[in-house]
Design a protein around this nucleic acid. Structure first.
Lengths: 205, 205
DNA sequence: GTCTATACACCGATAGAC
DNA sequence: GTCTATCGGTGTATAGAC
């Protein structure tokens, strides 16, 4: 293996670990499996990272950092807010269907972190990241639809994430697409019901 | 160790495994840890079960079977439907707060099963059990409040479970009680909005 | 039936040659 | 810096004494 900078080696190992976790779960992501995936020797792993948990920690930080671009593209200008929310949920659902093991891996990483004392604070950051993405989507959706939210955006973001988590888990368990659509319809109905039209200057009524 | 019938030994090992999983997660539930918890020798485990996964399978079947009595007691006669739904959610939440690792363990069991080919059908049964409990609660709540549901009970049950899963995961991550209350309020509002009063014979309007 | 002892694979981590 | 070889520990599962 060619000589790599420390940062480059760490990044390659994290990317390899993500592929292994996606394929075999957090449990399958042993140091040996990761270096095999990265095409490195076992010793290289512990040259780059002090321990496996240190790598997991960096991996979660990477995942949390690179999650913004999820489905911002789904926000189309000119649509009403109910349609916009439903489209965002649909975009997320199609991401889930096309890559179920990846969504499962995110849950597994959370549970692993909660059981590992040195990593137990990471899930807080993970969900803070989810909430941030949800806030951005709700904000931009409201802006293009010309509405504001009657609930604080923080509360609304948490409700939206509760819906996506809830529908994801049930779908992973029974793969019922139609049932997932029912939950998404309900979520779009109830969330968009909290939107109020922006009162313009010409006193519309 | 005294001689035990095969069923009794299996049952004791499952109970011990549940305690270990609760304490240390599915990963910590090794055969050695389980027999230590049960006060048996290692060989006894493989005398009772052909493999660890066979025991996990029986353990999940046990959990799924014994989940009905969760919070049926929370349904009080004479309350309106919004109050009844909110009280049911509160009862679940207090169960979660008083025993967070147990709720986490149920998620971990699901993810482990999904990654294990021989167990991959178990999550379907696990969620079917959740939905069944939700249906019973929604039915009895509607009966005491004198309403019916304007959505099929199956769909409503799935929505309720999505709420409990979603609020559980976020709470496990950041332990924000106030934020959980917001989600529960929203769930109670939107679910009870789907209740319609039963029209009595004297043509009430 | 229940035990101790052990087989065998794999784990994270490190030593030391190059 | 990168490798091979190996350490000490633990995993599931089994053999064989009692």
């Amino acid at each position: 293996m060619a000589r790599l900078s420390s940062d480059e080696r760490r990044a390659r190992l994290v990317q390899a670990a993500l592929r292994v976790i996606d394929r075999d779960g957090v449990q399958g992501a042993t140091t040996r499996a990761i270096v095999a995936e990265a095409g490195m020797s076992l010793a290289s792993f512990h040259y780059a990272f002090r321990s496996r948990d240190e790598m997991i920690s960096e991996l979660i930080a990477f995942v949390v950092e690179n999650e913004q671009q999820v489905s911002l593209a789904a926000v189309r200008p000119g649509t009403d807010i109910r349609t916009a929310v439903r489209a965002g949920l649909q975009a997320f659902f199609e991401l889930l269907v096309s890559n179920p093991t990846r969504e499962q891996a995110l849950f597994e990483l959370m549970h692993y972190s909660l059981r590992t004392p040195e990593l137990s604070e990471l899930p807080r950051a993970q969900y803070a990241s989810y909430f941030r993405v949800a806030r951005v989507l709700l904000d931009s959706g409201a802006a293009t639809a010309g509405v504001t939210w009657s609930l604080p955006i923080d509360e609304l973001a948490r409700i939206l994430i509760a819906f996506t988590d809830g529908l994801t888990l049930a779908w992973l368990a029974d793969r019922d697409d139609a049932a997932a659509a029912v939950v998404m319809d309900f979520a779009a109905d109830t969330i968009s019901a909290l939107a109020v039209p922006i009162r313009t200057k010409e006193h519309q009524r």
